[in-house]
């Protein structure tokens, strides 16, 4: 594997390259992704927006192969992960993922949720893994819940823990699949706050969300998808104030 620190300046390096990505369901009847091309550079915060059914979640889930693409290629850190010979498990350790429904492991304490990955996969000692976990927990303000079980937490707390669980693996990119969609409105803020901090620390992030204000604030680039295709991509200021296509204008008029 390449040494990431040697690849300065960070913004010039393509972390992820997507080439003509396709995902069909039911033998081609449904084209969830119909030829996606894009690059994600190190340190970029890319927000993907679009109407429901536009394929934005499928796109995100293809990036770490939770959905196996029907066609096209995805290069992650220079390696074609869609190649059947690639061991995807190794690359997934470098791609943190946060789900809409948190998906914490209910039979483990919070601390165990956070340390099982580093301990089993990266062969970290218990002390080392717990030290990292406690530091990150403290940063999201949940250090006192380390020995609680997921069922004892609120939705917002669960999602913050889920973000920390992904961060404990020291990923190079974080994928967020509608991280605030299942939360009560008063809990959305605390999760966005954590994500905002991450963005400030130059974490590469790809975020599927309906939070347009958040997208405007943190995104370095916004991608608008519809019918499995990228319709427009631009800086948030340009994209929101000066939409080019009819579809984006139509979409923005409904959500803003």
């Amino acid at each position: 594997m390449k040494d990431n620190n040697a690849m300065q300046p960070v913004l010039s390096e393509n972390l992820i390259e997507v080439k003509d990505l396709q995902k069909y369901f039911k033998g081609g009847e449904i084209k969830a992704l119909d030829g996606i091309n894009t690059e994600i550079k190190k340190g970029e915060v890319v927000v993907v927006i679009g109407p429901s059914g536009s394929g934005k979640s499928t796109f995100l889930r293809c990036l770490n192969l939770l959905e196996v693409p029907t066609g096209g290629q995805i290069f992650f850190e220079g390696v074609d992960i869609t190649d059947a010979k690639t061991n995807i498990n190794l690359h997934r350790q470098k791609m943190g993922m946060v789900f809409q429904l948190f998906n914490l492991f209910p039979h483990m304490t919070i601390l165990r949720n956070l340390t099982i990955g580093p301990m089993k996969l990266q062969k970290k000692s218990k002390e080392e893994a717990e030290k990292t976990a406690m530091e990150l927990l403290a940063r999201v303000g949940l250090a006192d819940r380390a020995n609680a079980y997921p069922s004892q937490l609120s939705g917002g707390q669960k999602q913050r823990i889920a973000i920390v669980r992904a961060l404990c693996m020291k990923p190079d990119v974080m994928l967020f699949d509608e991280p605030t969609s299942a939360l009560d409105p008063e809990m959305v803020g605390e999760v966005l706050e954590v994500m905002r901090d991450l963005a400030k620390e130059n974490m590469t992030m790809i975020i599927v969300t309906h939070e347009m204000n958040f997208a405007r604030e943190v995104a370095s680039r916004v991608i608008f998808m519809d019918n499995g295709m990228i319709i427009e991509e631009n800086t948030p200021d340009e994209l929101f104030t000066n939409p080019q296509s009819e579809r984006l204008k139509n979409f923005l008029s409904k959500v803003l």
Binding site: R92, M97, L121
Partner: peptide
């Protein structure tokens, strides 16, 4: 989602 969460961490 439990399987997905496990796989996304890098577990086989």
């Amino acid at each position: 989602g439990q399987m997905e969460a496990g796989r996304s961490l890098g577990f086989n």
